[in-house]
Design a binder for these strands. Structure first.
Length: 323
DNA sequence: GCGGATCAC
DNA sequence: TATGGTGATCCGC
């Protein structure tokens, strides 16, 4: 009885809608609330859109933040300086300088990589790009320490799933630009490693559509396509042209992309920013710990501040709530 | 320094 | 395949 009544109501809904909005007649259309469809027209049904289909769930950012925090706790164990890009994405540095194999072997925790001396030499050399990060590069031969990065990453993803019942995908590559692209390769719930050899990187770049690269969006793609450029290797072949048509920051970016270069510099992740601190003493405390971190870093790298100079603290009123 | 465009999420 | 809203960055003025 109730069922039939409901049925009639849905039928009426659809017909009413079609009557009142004839312009929707030939378009896939559905009637319903935020969370459930009551009915749909036949065009929509062709696409599998039917009554009683759940459509939109309300967002719950408090929940997302909480889960994100759990995942970040796991991230931190692999790279304490990991860089979150959003609630569900982050860059981690899995590079371990040579000579830390023993420490790893002695570690009782299989999932833990010692962060000791992490990326010191590496980050000093590469504030930005890292052309000599390749394993076959003559100047240096960084090595991924431990069983393999792939296993470490697999384990990390496994732990994320155990803890949150959420699957994750990962891209493993010599730099962030490539890692981002790689992370798309085996979505969902997979990973892809691009070896750190010049050959592998160039092969990978060769036929990579420019649109895949983070930073090249819809508009840039259209413009490049209009110039006959659709892949990254095209970018490299047209640098002269591009340097005339685009701004310097734009075309140098294109050039880096075409060479498979990207940033390897993952800035220190600070849970706290000055902006979030309203009390002056809190701000001062943060400032102090930042200075101490800096001092520690410099010590590790064997750097000193020349005695004829001063360390300057730049006070940026904009950063503070209190002005 | 501001507004518009582009981009990622 | 589209869609909305937001924050960051870049560019031209």
């Amino acid at each position: 009885m109730m069922l039939q009544k409901a049925k009639i109501t849905e039928e009426q809904l659809r017909k009413q809608k079609l009557r009142d909005c004839p312009e929707l007649k030939d378009k896939p259309m559905a009637v319903g609330s935020m969370s459930m469809l009551s009915t749909s027209n036949y065009h929509a049904r062709k696409f599998g859109v039917r009554a009683a289909m759940p459509v939109i769930v309300p967002t719950n950012f408090d929940k997302y933040r909480a889960v994100s925090e759990e995942i970040r706790e796991i991230f931190a164990e692999y790279d304490p300086h990991f860089q979150p890009m959003s609630l569900d994405e982050a860059y981690l540095n899995f590079y371990r300088p040579p000579g830390t194999e023993e420490e790893l072997a002695e570690s009782s925790r299989t999932h833990y990589f010692s962060a000791k001396g992490s990326s010191s030499e590496y980050s000093r050399r590469h504030k930005g790009l890292s052309p000599d990060l390749f394993e076959d590069s003559p100047s240096s031969s960084p090595v991924f320490v431990g069983t393999s990065v792939e296993e470490a990453v697999r384990e990390m993803r496994f732990r994320i799933e155990q803890r949150t019942r959420l699957t994750a995908s990962a891209g493993i590559a010599p730099n962030m630009m490539l890692a981002k692209v790689c992370s798309d390769k085996n979505k969902p719930n997979g990973q892809y490693r691009l070896p750190s050899t010049r050959e592998a990187v160039m092969d990978f770049i060769q036929n990579l559509p420019v649109r895949k690269v983070s930073g090249i969006g819809k508009v840039s793609e259209k413009m490049l396509n209009a110039l006959g450029i659709s892949t990254c290797s095209h970018l490299g072949q047209q640098m002269a042209l591009l340097s005339l048509l685009f701004s310097e920051t734009a075309w140098t970016h294109f050039m880096e992309v075409s060479l498979g270069l990207g940033s390897t510099y993952i800035p220190r992740y600070s849970a706290m920013t000055f902006k979030e601190l309203s009390r002056a003493e809190d701000q001062f405390a943060l400032c102090k710990t930042l200075c101490e971190d800096l001092a520690e870093d410099m010590k590790k790298e064997g750097l000193k501040v020349p005695h004829d100079r001063h360390v300057c603290l730049i006070y940026y009123p904009k950063c503070f709530n209190t002005g």
